Amino acid sequence: MRRAPVPAVLVSGTLLLVTSCAWGGAEGAERPPGIPAGVTAEAGSATSVHVMWNQVTGEPPITEYEIYQGSKKVKEVDADEHMADVVQLKPGTRYVFSVRAKDAEGRLSEPSREVAATTPAAVAADDSPPTAPGRTTGRAAGSRAVQLEWGAAKDDQKVVSYDIFQGDSKIHSVGGSQTAAVVTGLRPGTDYVFTVKARDAADNVSPAGNTVELTTAAGDDASGQDTAPTDFKATTSEVDGAYNLDLSWMPPPVDGVISEYQIQLDGKSATSLVWGGDPPEGRSEYSFYIGEKAGESHRVRLRAKLPDGTWGGYSAELTVTTGAP
């Protein structure tokens, strides 16, 4: 049977390409890793920049991430790390960064979107760290995020950034003018301990502020219904003698960025949808090829990759028939 070309699809202003379908061959065959999303860059000192991104999962599993400064690879980190400090930079200089994921077979994803950061100007010899941040407070923001606030630290020059720690691990950084942050990608009903440290342009780090103990709200992880896409709709359309499956839905109401969905067709994984840029806000749409015969019925549903890297609950399952009105 002649197979129609794989269609390019415009989704909320972003051009996407359906890369593979399980029913057309071995599931995941030759599929590159997903593109890292949620990439940010923030100057940490006059000579360093913090680069952060969301976790990518796939099969084969992701084994590491590569960080690029322009077109040059400057760092590699293991798959369980989603933040890296790029050091030995020049003061007062603008840099552009991107991230690529690598899987166990050595295949690289396409580069993420580029993000820019400018290091502050160099300062005179400085070996005095900032004071500890003022009183830190926080609250749970739903089941998968917390909001933290703290008092500004003091420095004889200037505070350039604040580092947020979860236990002993640095998990987030914000600019020195910010005294609040939202930490996403957490687990429902889980106890966390956070602290904040200040950093100056000379890379001097302050003592930690007070610890904040927070518990995320309980979530229905067992059923996953609070993490499932809603208002799911499915129809078919004919294009050049072949049929596409046209889907639309509302993203699940979770805190954080959702950059990937998995579509299940007739009980099997059909394709993964990875946004080719910033995920759209509000209703999402997607189409892909399902065959050339009219009158064929298919069951379809989808689920989202949540900010903490786990899969959410499935949407309602719908049945569509090719060629049906």
Rank of each mutant, 00 (worst) to 15 (best):
W23G: 10
A26S: 13
E30Q: 14
G38T: 00
V39M: 05
T40G: 11
N54I: 09
T57Q: 08
E64G: 11
Y65R: 02
I67S: 05
Q69H: 11
K72G: 11
K73Q: 15
D78P: 11
H82N: 12
K90G: 09
K90A: 14
R94A: 15
K102E: 07
S109T: 00
S109V: 00
A121F: 11
V123L: 09
T136G: 06
A140K: 04
G142N: 06
G142C: 02
W150P: 04
K154H: 12
K154M: 11
V159L: 06
V160Y: 09
V160S: 13
H172W: 14
G175F: 00
R187V: 13
P188M: 08
T190K: 11
D191T: 11
V193T: 13
S206W: 05
P207M: 08
A208R: 07
V212N: 00
E213S: 09
D226R: 03
K233G: 13
G241N: 12
N244F: 14
D246V: 10
P251L: 01
V254F: 02
Q262G: 13
G267L: 01
V274C: 06
G277N: 04
P280T: 03
P280M: 00
G282S: 01
E296A: 11
H298S: 04
R299Q: 15
W311T: 02
S315F: 01
T322N: 07
A324P: 05
